[in-house]
Design a protein around this nucleic acid. Structure first.
Lengths: 337, 337
DNA sequence: TTGTAGGCGTTATCAC
DNA sequence: GTGATAACGCCTACAA
């Protein structure tokens, strides 16, 4: 249709009988405009359907308002919940989220970060995968802030939000013991991310401190199906475990289903189960899963708060890492409680 | 740190010993550059860490490459799956997704669309809620393309992707009858979106054609908890239903759980259950839910395909609406099969 | 094929 | 408080 569909500040200025600057000021919070001018401008803008062009604004200000969310497996319950929290908090802070899908391939996160740079995103938040160190440096050099969520890693520069995975996992041993369990198992995925490994190691270490050995089994991605396979392996052992800690809720759900429907093992009577994440399904009455709650809202809040800090580049603000607690949510998949 | 963190085409040009235009052409597909110049430019760009500024490019081309996804309840299984498919396909098509959260409030979608306009998004895809007709017009007037997914509505202009909800729902009656069911029920949410209502009406109409009455109950949002409440209502009737069609899988899961654990009703022996969406959980062995599959990939493909069509504004391309089929996925929540 | 010049819509700076 | 003017980084004629 029309070649120039968008209406510019120029046109608004003409219609309102003022200068372009006046229009600009009207839409810039904290600028000084007389009520009279403002009224005229707003009126003209309304009539013409004017909207500030954030592309041009970003160009000038060197600040786009865009934050890039880099995620894999975003259809997963925990991931999608985190995305929701992040986009919501970003919106509240006047920013906007860009979403980039990554897969398991190596260069995937790097490609995503390049995309973020091209759109001059003020920051990138990485929920999955790890960027190459060189890419990280490229981002930082380009003035982009980086947030890593649950990607435990010791790079300087990015802001890292992690959980006290090991501590949480350790606490679970006590809970299992109180329930009368003695043959402990840990069901992990093969993904081998720092969070997952911290849970495993924390659990094993705490058990050892109590004089207990833990059978550890690892398989596949962090998914429901992996839980089924892990159950197959662990529940056919001659010394069948009477308590299993699954690295994520999805694994736990698969594990419980296989235990009950395939091996006729009763939970929690014959087997106590715990998970991690507190996804919505953990509360469903088919599972009633005892699990650790990811502090999703707190994670999102901390991330956005850090992005808003003017002194984030400031060396004095080098609390570049934060650890949050994952609280245990008691449900009936563990006896007692 | 540095005031001007981003490196511009100008700097690349200087380092490569060519003009700014040469740099621009190098990064514009289909422009004519000699291999020699291209090599020099690419080399310099690599060394400096240059990335085309899509903000500036969008400004010039009047085409940002941004597509805005407008969603509510994005933590929900079906929604997050659709978001994943859309972002993936958009990326494949060289575009990038912006994500905007809406809530139930009335102006919410309008606000989101304004945001899309400010960032000069090439298009907006609406997965939840309905925009005001005036807002829709504003978008179209601003050269923005609009896609409505499962928002059945007769506005001209937006491209609408819908399912054959009523047809699908009707087919289910036959299935229930074959399983020997006679007392049919429909468990719906109060949301009252066109898709949900189409499923309800299609089911009721098909049953009536078979000479059967359907008990319809509506409650709350399309969520697990609503399913539990609906079960409470429907399973305490003096004439207890022996088949229930739930408007979504989430409702169905809640319904099944309440039926089994609260009312000790056996599924499918005493009660056949069906859902809609085919979320991941429907396949979990605690549910084994017979349901209709949302053709998520096809929806995403069609949306992106339409966005890529140059003639989308062309009146001759007024197949502004498309209907896809939802295939029935047979699992054991209905007898027989 | 290459370089030069002008403009996209905005904001910041500086006079007034 | 207001209006001109100069950037911001890029693309696209147009001329060489």
């Amino acid at each position: 249709m029309s070649q120039k569909p968008f209406v510019s500040a120029q046109e608004v200025a003409e219609r309102a009988g003022v200068s372009r600057s006046a229009v600009s000021r009207t839409f810039t919070p904290g600028a000084s405009v007389s009520p009279e001018t403002r009224r005229k401008v707003v009126e003209a803008a309304e009539a013409l359907g004017y909207h500030v062009n954030h592309l041009a604004r970003g160009l000038m200000r060197n600040e786009s308002g865009i934050v890039c969310l880099i995620v894999s497996e975003m259809g997963t319950p925990y991931r999608s919940t985190l995305i929701r929290a992040l986009t919501q908090q970003l919106q509240n802070a006047g920013k906007i989220a860009m979403l980039v899908n990554t897969d398991r391939s190596d260069g995937s996160v790097g490609l995503a970060l390049r995309q973020a740079i091209r759109y001059r995103a003020d920051a990138s938040i990485i929920l999955s995968g790890m960027p190459d160190k060189s890419i990280t440096q490229l981002c930082l050099k380009n003035g982009q802030r980086l947030v890593l969520i649950n990607r435990d890693d010791d790079q300087e520069g990015p802001f890292r939000i992690n959980l006290n995975d090991a501590v949480a996992a350790g606490r679970l041993v006590t809970a299992f013991l109180r329930a009368g369990c003695r043959r402990l198992a840990f069901a992990n995925s093969e993904a081998g991310t720092p969070s997952l490994m911290a849970r495993e190691h924390g659990f094993v270490a705490a058990a050892k401190a109590m004089g207990l050995e833990v059978v550890v089994e690892r398989y596949g991605p962090t998914a429901y199906e992996s839980g089924r396979v892990l159950a197959q392996r662990l529940l056919t052992l001659s010394e069948r475990p009477d308590a299993v800690f699954c690295a994520t809720d999805l694994i736990a759900c698969g594990f419980m289903d296989a235990a009950r429907h395939q091996f006729s093992v009763s939970v929690p009577d014959q087997l106590c189960v715990a998970g991690f994440d507190d996804i919505e399904q953990a509360a469903w009455s088919s599972y009633e899963l005892t699990t650790f709650a990811q502090p999703v809202e707190a994670i999102a809040r901390e991330a956005v708060r850090w992005l808003g800090r003017v002194d984030a580049q400031d060396p004095s603000a080098r609390d570049h890492s934060i650890r949050l607690d994952a609280d245990l949510v008691w449900r009936s998949s563990i006896r007692g409680g």
